[in-house]
């Protein structure tokens, strides 16, 4: 599929009628994200406990760091005992682990996947590459600072961080959620224009609506 396929155009239906189609409108919903205020204090406490003890990670490895998340499923590290599980679809996941360097091409997919996740959602940035670019700091096609593009909850420094560091990072994330500070999704909705401007600055072939759902 090329970019021109997404242009608005008129086509002939099988009955010979002329109909106008706008693929960007047909394939995606482009409503802006809304800020969802937390519910009452008591409910939010219980909910935050459940959210922190049931972290569903989106199975999307963006860079070399993805190799460090696999051992977490094995008997040696066994992340399941902390309530961490992997989900295949962004709709059901609540944690996005940006594993290592992020090329501009991947960033586009990351943005789409992140926007398809449901509020509340959290971002864990793994490795130095997400903090300042790491060893790819002067690369022509990777981004340097992730928090220009997505609201990050936890950074795990290192190149590469060991699986133990990841587990420690998840414990940190749990603490943040339990304290009610894991409001990345609302932050993204509030500063939507700023994030979008930053994203569009690096993604030059922007062929999707501003918000995918």
């Amino acid at each position: 599929m090329s970019k021109s396929d997404l242009d608005k155009r008129t086509v002939l239906s099988p009955e010979g009628e002329e109909i106008e189609i706008d693929p960007l409108k047909d394939y995606f919903a482009d409503a802006r994200p809304k800020v969802h205020r937390p519910a009452s204090k008591v409910i939010e406490r219980i909910a935050n406990w459940a959210r922190s003890e049931s972290l569903w990670i989106l199975g999307f490895g963006t860079g070399c760091g993805a190799i460090e998340t696999r051992p977490l499923m094995t008997p040696k590290f066994d992340a399941y005992r902390y309530g961490i599980q992997w989900r295949a679809t962004p709709r059901q996941a609540s944690v996005f682990v940006i594993s290592g360097y992020l090329s501009v091409k991947t960033l586009k997919r990351v943005i789409r996947s992140y926007e398809q996740m449901q509020n509340p959602k959290y971002v864990v940035a793994l490795g130095s590459c997400t903090i300042n670019g790491g060893m790819y700091w002067d690369s022509y096609n990777t981004i340097n600072r992730l928090d220009y593009y997505l609201p990050v909850d936890v950074y795990i420094a290192g190149c590469m961080p060991r699986p133990e560091a990841l587990l420690a990072g998840f414990q940190r994330l749990k603490k943040i959620i339990k304290e009610g500070r894991g409001e990345g999704a609302n932050e993204y909705a509030e500063k939507f224009d700023w994030y979008k401007a930053n994203q569009k600055k690096v993604v030059t072939d922007w062929d999707m609506p501003d918000y995918n759902w």
């Binding site: 969802h36 409910i43 219980i46 909910a47 459940a50 959210r51 003890e53 049931s54 569903w56 094995t74 008997p75 066994d78 399941y80 005992r81 309530g83 599980q85 609540s94 449901q118 509020n119 509340p120 999704a185």
Partner: peptide
């Protein structure tokens, strides 16, 4: 493996019902 806590399905359920 040590495995999930036996009450993990309950936590997952509460989490999904309290998504915003």
């Amino acid at each position: 493996r040590y495995g999930i806590r036996f009450y993990q399905p309950y936590i997952d359920l509460i989490k999904n019902y309290t998504k915003r």
